[in-house]
């Protein structure tokens, strides 16, 4: 007795994912190789003008700057997130939950609101400047807001949990006896970290970096609120191409570059996982 439930469930799920998952990306690829049209957004003939445009110095500059800011953000997230995940993984079970919930509360709060909150912290008359002045570290307020530093601090603030969670998932499974074995064999702290902990945590590191790196370049509102009016991130560029310049082929081509970057990182990640699996040998 085969009911109609099964095909109906499969059909609905497949339809949804094809219409809202596959089709939009195909249309985006299509739009990137069409010609700009003021009335209907895009029209024939096919052309690679949009991609050629990406190589112009003005675009390349934004791309490179965005890459630089994203890389600094990833490095900062890793620098803070790694010890955070390591310390948390070594805590007793009850404390683990507390720390993770404390980490998740800001994460569940609207990210735009938090970016706005960062602005109040970094402002010329903000708390940070006041504290530094009061402590006598500086004589005059620092210009923090509307600088690249402010943007990086904002991106770091928003993306840190995305780095910590995969790292924690990895380090939580780490067999601490390996560290003890290393210590018994006379290895110091640095050697144990470089030779044992770091290589075993690479899948977590990579997953965290992927989750932070590409999305960071899309967070246009952080650049707008903390970095001033300049075009800083690829996200600002795409927003400007779509909503202001109405140049859909160029905007689509820009995002195709982001998609390729993401795909490249995922491919590298799979390669890493496979190599880690073969290094461990058959279980």
């Amino acid at each position: 007795m085969e009911s109609k439930t099964r095909p109906a469930v499969i059909g609905l799920v497949a339809l949804w994912l094809v219409v809202f998952g596959v089709l939009p990306i195909l249309l985006l690829l299509g739009a990137s190789v069409l010609t700009q049209d003021p009335a209907h957004f895009v029209r024939l003939p096919l052309s690679l003008d949009a991609y050629r445009q990406l190589l112009e110095p003005a675009y390349l500059q934004v791309m490179l700057r965005s890459l630089k800011l994203a890389l600094i953000t990833v490095a900062l997230c890793l620098l803070v997130g790694y010890p955070f995940a390591w310390f948390t993984a070594r805590l007793p079970a009850g404390w683990k939950t507390t720390i993770l919930v404390l980490l998740m509360i800001p994460f569940w709060t609207n990210s735009l609101v938090r970016t706005y909150a960062i602005r109040t912290l970094l402002g010329t008359q903000g708390l940070l400047n006041k504290a530094l002045l009061a402590l006598g570290v500086i004589d005059a307020p620092l210009q923090l807001i509307y600088t690249d530093l402010a943007v990086v601090l904002g991106l770091f603030y928003l993306m840190l949990p995305f780095m910590i969670l995969p790292l924690y998932a990895n380090l939580d499974k780490f067999d601490y006896r390996l560290v003890e074995a290393g210590r018994d064999l006379g290895a110091g702290f640095a050697r144990i970290f470089v030779k044992i902990v770091w290589p075993l945590s690479l899948p977590g590191v990579f997953a965290g970096c992927i989750l932070v790196f590409v999305p960071t370049m899309g967070l246009f509102y952080v650049a707008t609120l903390l970095g001033g009016a300049r075009q800083l991130l690829v996200g600002n560029l795409i927003q400007q191409q779509f909503l202001n310049a109405r140049n859909w082929p160029a905007g689509s081509a820009t995002s195709v570059v982001l998609i390729l970057l993401m795909a490249l990182m995922l491919a590298a990640y799979r390669l890493l996982l496979r190599r880690a699996a073969t290094a461990r040998g058959p279980q």
């Binding site: 939009p24 249309l27 370049m217 899309g218 995002s255 982001l258 993401m262 995922l266």
Partner: peptide
């Protein structure tokens, strides 16, 4: 996994 900006314009 897709960044929001890509999903948005797609």
């Amino acid at each position: 996994m897709a960044p929001d900006i890509i999903l948005a314009i797609a």
